[in-house]
Every structure is written in C-alpha cells, then in structure tokens.
Design a protein around this nucleic acid. Structure first.
Lengths: 332, 332
DNA sequence: ATGCATTGTGCACACGATTACACAAACGGT
DNA sequence: ACCGTTTGTGTAATCGTGTGCACAATGCAT
C-alpha cells in the first residue's frame, strides 16, 4: 500500500497469500472466466492490499497481444499533426491501448527506429509522417497487418488506409482568389518532396490548370514558421507573386508576417495567402487564416474505425476517403 | 524478406535453420557474450534473410528491463509542453528507449491510466503534467522510482526531481512594468489550482509585494487561447487592470488579441502582457511576447541526466534546480 | 606430454502470466 | 438413488528470450 516495497509482487506470491493457485489469481482478473465470486472478491481484496497488478509484459507474451500502438509522426510539437495526435491518443487510452510515439523528424535512422518499435509486437501501427515511405513501414511491420493512414494511393498492399481528398476545396479557394484578381501563384512546399506534399500541391495545381493558370514559382520550406517567413520574402520580392499557397498553416502564418513586415503588403488586398490543415491557431484573431481544412474529428474517427475493424479481424485491406473543406479567413 | 510471411519467426526456429541452439541465437544478438565471430556472422545473415528480430516483450520479461518510459503529460497539442516533449522523445530514442505517452487532460481517470502504464513495467517515469498529484504518481509507480519534474518542493520522498525557479526573472519583469507606470496587476491562472500554477503566481506576487503592490484581480483559464481571450476581456473591462501576467504564452497571446480587438488597447503602452514558458511561437513576429522563459534544452538535459543516474543505479533521490530568464518582446 | 586457462556451444531453467485439461463437488431432474 | 451437467479449482504446458552451469575443444606454457 505505502510506497515502501520496491519489488512488485507476482501472481504466484499473491496466490500463496490468498491460499489459491496462481491460475485462480489470473482468473480473478479476467472478466469472463469461471471463478467463484467469493473467491474473486477475496483475491481482489488481497491484491489491492499488496498493490498487485498483473504484469502486462508477461500477459502480452502469452496473449500474443501487447495492446501497444505505434504512432509514426514527424514531430510532436508541430501543431499541424498535434491536434490529431492528441485526439487519437485519447481515443486509444479510452480503449486501454497505449501509444508509443516514434518521432521521425531529425532522426538519423527512421527505419531502425521503426524496427525497434516492431520488436515490441505492437498491435497496430498508424503512420502520420510523410518522411517514411509506406513500403518501408509495410515491410518492417509485416507481422502487424494493420498499417495505416496514407495520402498516397497504396495499391495492391494488404494495409488499410485513409485517403484524403482536398481537390474540391482547393478549387473553391482558387476560384475565390482568381475572382479577386490575383494572377501570379506560388506554392510553398513543406518538404522537399514527400508524397503528401506532392498530392496537396496537385490539388491546387489542377484547380489552376482548370483556369488556364499554373504556379509561377515554387519554394521549399520545412513546415516551420521561420521557413515560411524566409521563403515568402523571396517569393514576393524576387518572383513578384501575389498569391502563396502554403503546405501548412504554420508556414502560412510566417508568410503573412513576412508580407506584412518586410514587404509592407496586406492580405487579402495586396496578396493572398492560404494555409493547409485547419489547425485551431489558424482561427485565432491575430491569424484569421484562409485554409484548406480537414475535419480532425472525422479523421481520427476513421483511424479508430480501421483499428476496430482490424481488431475484429475483419479480413482484407480497408480504405476510407475523407474530403477537405475550405475555411475562410481574412488572408484570401 | 518480402511482406509475405505473416508470423514472426522465433529464436528456436531460427536456431534450427542455422543449425545451432536457441541460446546461441540469443548470444549472437548480445554484443558482449562469448560466441565465435564466424557463428555470429552466419546467424546474423540467416536472421536477416528471414526477417528475424528478437522479441522485445520476451526479452523484457526475462531482463526485468522494458526500455519503456512513461511520459505523463497534460496534452500533446499544447505548445507549452510540446517543445519539451519533442526534445525528450528525441533524446530517449537516441538511447533506444521508447516513450509511452499518457495524456491526462480530459481523461476521466488519470490514476487508472497511470496504473495501466505501470503494469507495462516501464523503466522510468517523467511527470510533466500538473494535473496529477505527485503523491499519486509515486504510489502508483512505486517500483519505478519516477523522475519527477516537480516545481513543488518534494521533501522526504524517494524520487528525483527538477525544481524550477523563476523568482529572479519575475522580479526583473515586474520591475520593468512598474517603471513603465503600470499600477493594477492581474494574474491569469492556467488551471484552477495546481501546484505549478501556484508556484508561478507566487514568483510574481513576491516581486509585487517587494514593491508594496499586489494582484488586484485573478482569473482562471485553462491554458488555451480562447480562455486567455475571454478572461482578459473581463479583467480589462470589469477590473480595469493595466497589466496581466498569464500562466502560459498561449493565454498571453489570447489576452493580447482581446486587448487589441475588443478593448482597442495596445501593448505595451496601454497595457502590459506577460507570458510564461518561452515557446517558439512567442517570438514570432506577429506575437513578440515578453515572457518568463525556461531554457528547454537545459531542462531536458536535466531530465536525461536524472534518467542516466537512475540507470546507473546511483542511489538516493537527486535534484536539479533550473532558473528562468526574462525574454523581452513588445508586450511589456 | 601434461596441466591449466580460455573459448564456444548446448541444456535447462527462469521471467510472470494465460489456458487447455482434468477432476472433485454441487446441483437438478427423473 | 442415479446420472448428466454445471461450477470451481489445481496441474502443467506455453509464450520467446537470457543466462548459469557443464562440458568439449582449443591454445599456451612448462
């Protein structure tokens, strides 16, 4: 009870204390097993008294079920993923699943990191990061079937995925900006060339093409405020663009600050700036960003749905498609 | 090799394939064990060919060492903790330790959550959250000697802790604001009453007291932008304060927006606003916040230092104290 | 050639739980 | 009173590794 005892008590020891066998201890902690209710109550009482809890590691070894979930993410701090991570972690915890975070940004060997996690026999893997190739994830977690969350078209693979479609919303946004008289568009990528970045850019490029336009310039940042600021200065000054589509909201805020501070230009009159993700911060009064937004709750609902299907051992790779919406602010 | 095989191969099976005993397989994967280098090379080759990796769950059971670390946090998305979480996760991964995240905000039963994690025999526990009582953490992880990140004085307990002292920096900041002529101070708390909030408030209250002043008003938010915005409107309008010390940076940004938008008052001339944490966002051009800042790198260095001492089984509870610094922006 | 230290490998048990099987006791229906 | 079913518990095997011990083989010094 008190914090005295260092060592954790085992089921066999508790068995001796309660005058039963260790099998009965185990049964006392398994909801639907044949055990007398009097015995169970007594065991639970003794267990509480001695601070006994079944060892999840040993249980996992026997069960072949660890109740661990690997979340492969770029970073924790970055708001664009953070809201989804937060939601998912809550949903997992409610199901008694524990998340193991794998941070891929700045990590020299992402593959080794994933291999390490895979040795822990995780039950599920959710890939948010665009810094790992899906094929690598599938190979490394090949025993874990359920792999997840992709923006890229994962053909013939035995993995479940969530596809995201923002083409319609991108079209709406481009429509508005073009009607406002903007003519020279730039795309500010989040990474040099990840599948998710390519896809997002394509949504807007298609919308432009439909109107006989295309991107006049393209820059590459790293999803950070600073890179948004720096690249926007170049785009505005050197390339004279009057509309910047950014790979995420944080860079868009940086770009807006650059326009305002360095070039003395204001949105949406002088230039248009568009973000992506629809993070909460984008709606703050000081930002008020126009952004291509994804419904985070629906997104995480989909992830949990896939996890549950997998748990229920419903066969075959599943796929869910979500569409983005335009969220209007004062920047475009 | 290819993604075909569903089941993971075991050491005994690999042993048969390599014509050795399973003990030798184990030794091939343990760096300093007596094994012929030829045998080891052959085994590693066969292992690679069949995609074998030792099962970390089984190893943990045998070793009494899981290489898992529980991180008890309020939330993932909130920037105030996120930067530290990010840093720590990287440092852990570099040591081949895997972090399990426990999100306490909005979770009905934090104790049960911690108990769940404790059954996984985590090697270390780091408590960032101020929503759990230290005593609870110590009790639940009594076998683990948690590394506590504590602002509160944890006396006589057998846990390592990191104390944070911001009194000096708070004094500097109050000094500047008072010299600027501000007279009516308010404190905007992050939570109703957590130990961390109490301590932070005390730093500023002491600085005020030293000058014969005290807080004219106090409000309670929830560390979010919206709560900062909403409470600031009340403080400025109802209580006519001209300086607001906020429990974190995000609320400070909300308060600044409220002052500017609703009350048409500007910082630092009309009112002074101070944040706490020193997150990156506070330095963005659009925010430029004056804030009581903690060196995140030094902070995480301290956490890792404690973890290492704990790993090296250096006895006794350790304690490290860090001091905050004032980071000046245009809001105070 | 003998004795001793070193190296490499296998056997068998431990880690802490779950669970199929066996079996005794209790129960209910005729 | 008898038999079949249900209920509760113990025994022992299992999950996949790590490791102490035993033992054979090799190397080295005398």
């Amino acid at each position: 009870m008190s914090g005295m005892n260092r060592r954790r008590i085992t089921s066999k020891e508790l068995a001796k204390l309660a005058g039963v066998s260790s099998a009965t201890i185990s049964r006392a902690f398994s909801p639907d097993s044949r055990i007398g209710s009097a015995t169970r109550d007594r065991i639970l009482a003794v267990a509480r008294e001695h601070g006994y809890q079944p060892n999840a590691i040993a249980r996992s070894l026997n069960n072949q079920r660890s109740r661990l979930v690997a979340l492969v993410v770029n970073a924790i701090g970055n708001p664009c993923e953070a809201e989804e991570q937060q939601l998912l972690v809550h949903r997992l915890q409610a199901r008694q699943l524990l998340p193991i975070i794998l941070c891929c940004a700045d990590h020299s060997d992402r593959l080794q990191l994933m291999r390490l996690a895979s040795t822990y026999q995780v039950d599920h893997v959710v890939v948010f990061s665009d810094m790992v190739s899906m094929q690598d994830a599938v190979d490394i977690f090949h025993t874990t079937k359920p792999i997840i969350v992709s923006f890229e078209p994962l053909e013939n693979e035995d993995v479940s995925s969530i596809r995201i479609d923002g083409s319609e919303a991108a079209d709406e946004i481009i429509d508005k900006i073009v009607r406002d008289g903007k003519k020279r568009f730039a795309y500010l990528s989040g990474t040099n060339s990840s599948w998710i970045d390519k896809l997002r850019r394509k949504w807007f490029a298609d919308a432009l093409a439909k109107r006989g336009l295309s991107f006049e310039a393209q820059a590459f940042g790293d999803y950070s405020y600073d890179s948004g600021f720096k690249e926007a200065v170049l785009l505005l000054h050197r390339d004279k663009v009057d509309a910047i589509i950014c790979g995420n909201d944080v860079m868009a805020i940086g770009a807006r600050d650059a326009a305002r501070r360095v070039l003395r230009k204001n949105t949406p009159d002088d230039i248009a700036i568009v973000g992506q993700d629809g993070i909460a911060m984008a709606a703050w009064d000081c930002n008020d960003l126009t952004t291509l937004s994804l419904d985070h709750v629906a997104f995480i609902d989909a992830v949990v749905e896939l996890i549950e299907r997998h748990d229920a051992e419903i066969e075959g790779p599943h796929s869910i498609t979500l569409t983005c919406t335009a969220r209007w602010g004062s920047t475009a």
